[in-house]
């Protein structure tokens, strides 16, 4: 299950709407092992395409160094589909390289970039296997018990 704060959820949706009809992409980093996405990092889609996204290679290195220095994981890796549903494509599955991440897909198709609800779904992608998971939106993480802290 992905638990995410409303503010971060909304920021992802906003980014997807802003970049429509191109695909938007980014990361939400969080403390290593916490499974809590806390630091929203919108990235530039170097492909600038309505059907493809790719982080710029220099930005990618900077991002991973920064997360390393801050002891963070890429908890969420998000991108938008702008004409198809919010489900991982064959390309998404083949290129998924963070087995620990929640892959969030947002769809801005059918006018969702302007108004109305935006599909917001989350998946684990491990060794080519896609598993959809529930998304729980909370106002603040402090409001929900920390699953990991109990053990």
């Amino acid at each position: 299950m992905l638990t995410i704060e409303r503010e971060i959820h909304d920021a992802i949706v906003e980014h997807a709407r802003r970049d429509h009809p191109d695909e938007a992409c980014g990361v939400v980093a969080g403390p290593i092992g916490s499974d809590r996405p806390t630091r929203f990092i919108p990235m530039v889609n170097a492909a600038m395409s309505p059907t493809f996204y790719e982080f710029d290679s220099t930005d990618l290195l900077r991002l991973y160094r920064e997360m390393d220095d801050r002891d963070e994981d890429p908890v969420v890796i998000y991108h938008s589909h702008t004409a198809t549903e919010a489900y991982p494509s064959r390309t998404d599955i083949n290129l998924a390289s963070e087995p620990g991440a929640h892959y969030v897909l947002v769809s801005t198709r059918e006018g969702a970039h302007e108004s109305g609800p935006v599909d917001f779904r989350s998946y684990r992608i491990v060794d080519g296997e896609v598993t959809e998971e529930e998304v729980t939106i909370v106002e603040r993480y402090a409001d929900v018990p920390d699953e990991k802290a109990k053990h």
């Binding site: 489900y87 991982p88 494509s89 390309t91 959809e132 939106i137």
Partner: peptide
């Protein structure tokens, strides 16, 4: 030397439809 897989993907090649969303999904 640093090795990093690209973070990339996209809707191209998404002809295969996924299953319906989980109940209670937004």
């Amino acid at each position: 030397v640093v090795i990093l897989p690209a973070v990339a993907g996209g809707s191209v090649g998404s002809a295969a439809q996924g299953p319906a969303p989980l109940p209670g999904h937004r």
